Every structure is written in C-alpha cells, then in structure tokens.
Simulated scan of single mutants.
Amino acid sequence: MEAHIIVNGQSVAVDVSVEVFSYMDRADHKDENLAHEKRRHWDGREFDEYIIAHECSRSYYETPEDWLCRRETLREIMTALEGCTAKQRRRFLLFALEGLSCSQIGNICGCSKSAILKSVEAVRRKLKHALQAG
C-alpha cells in the first residue's frame, strides 16, 4: 500500500505493508483524537461533574463590567486576526470555530496537514501575544 510521510518538510509517497499502513493510520487517528481532546479542554480544566453541576446549572447574568471586558477581549482578538494572512485566518477559524481536524482542513484547502498546523500555531502565537499585551 502507499503511505505518505513527511521528509524534510516534503510529503513523500512510500510503499508499505498492510500492517505498517494500518499502524500509521491508527497513529494518525490517535493524534487527531488528542488534538480534539486538547481543544475540548482549552482552558486547562478537566470536564467533570463538578463543572457541570456548579457552572452549567445556574443562569448566567452578565454584569456591565463582564460585558465590557468581553467586548474589549473580542476587539483584541479581532485586531490580532486582522494581522494574520487570509490563509492563516481561514485555517484557524475552520480549526477553532468549526472544529475541523488539520487533515480535514488540508483536504479543503488543498495543502498538507503540517501546513495547516503551522498556520494554526502562528495565529495562536499572535493571539496569545495580543492578549498578554492587552
């Protein structure tokens, strides 16, 4: 079977046995599952019964201070996104808002999974820098 691997940043097609292909495929799925898990817990907390019981059960009333902080944060995020290229912005939004994997975005954009990952990481760094500066 034919598998694609990255060598010095280039995708190379290699003939491999069915067992090796199966192993590589399972590894790719495991990587994607880990990425989804990281996104699911983006704030570093564990998704457990405590959070559900204490934060999701009561109604949320936004104070004027909370509203103002949310608006300022949104403005900072939008300013940081404007500083990104159109490709980076599109790839990041597909990843962060739509929840697509790097492989899926690569298929949509016609590029490699590593190119998508580099774009997403570049935008994350810009957002992190913008939010720390603000």
Rank of each mutant, 00 (worst) to 15 (best):
E37G: 08
L117D: 03
E46T: 07
H129W: 11
G106K: 01
L93N: 03
R70P: 00
R58A: 02
I116T: 04
A80I: 06
E62P: 00
A96Q: 10
R40M: 01
T85A: 00
R70Q: 10
N107F: 09
V20E: 15
T63I: 08
S103F: 12
L127N: 08
F95Y: 04
G9C: 06
A130C: 04
E98D: 14
H29S: 15
C109S: 10
K126H: 02
A86G: 02
E32N: 05
G83R: 07
V123Q: 01
A96S: 13
R70V: 04
D15L: 09
R71G: 04
C84N: 04
C102H: 12
R40T: 07
S11A: 03
R70E: 10
S11L: 05
F47N: 09
L93P: 02
C84E: 01
S57R: 05
S11H: 07
I5S: 12
V14E: 05
E98C: 01
S112A: 03
V16W: 02
A122M: 06
S22Q: 12
Q104V: 04
F92G: 00
K128S: 13
E37V: 01
C109L: 09
L93V: 13
R71F: 07
T63Y: 01
D66N: 08
R71W: 06
W67G: 03
A122P: 02
Y61D: 10
S11F: 04
L100W: 13
K87Q: 13
C109Q: 10
E37D: 15
G110Q: 01
V120G: 02
R70G: 10
I52T: 00
Y50E: 00
E49N: 02
L81I: 04
R71A: 14
A80H: 05
A13L: 09
K118N: 06
E65D: 12
D15P: 09
T63E: 02
V16R: 04
I51P: 01
Y50I: 02
A3L: 15
V16G: 09
F92C: 02
R75D: 05
I52Q: 00
N107T: 14
L81V: 01
V12R: 10
N33E: 09
E76G: 00
E49T: 06
H41N: 14
L94G: 08
K113R: 13
I77A: 13
R90Q: 11
I6T: 06
V14N: 01
Y61R: 07
N33Y: 12
D48M: 04
K87W: 11
D43A: 03
L93S: 12
G9Y: 03
Q104H: 10
L131V: 08
Q104E: 12
E37P: 09
A96E: 11
H4V: 15
D15V: 12
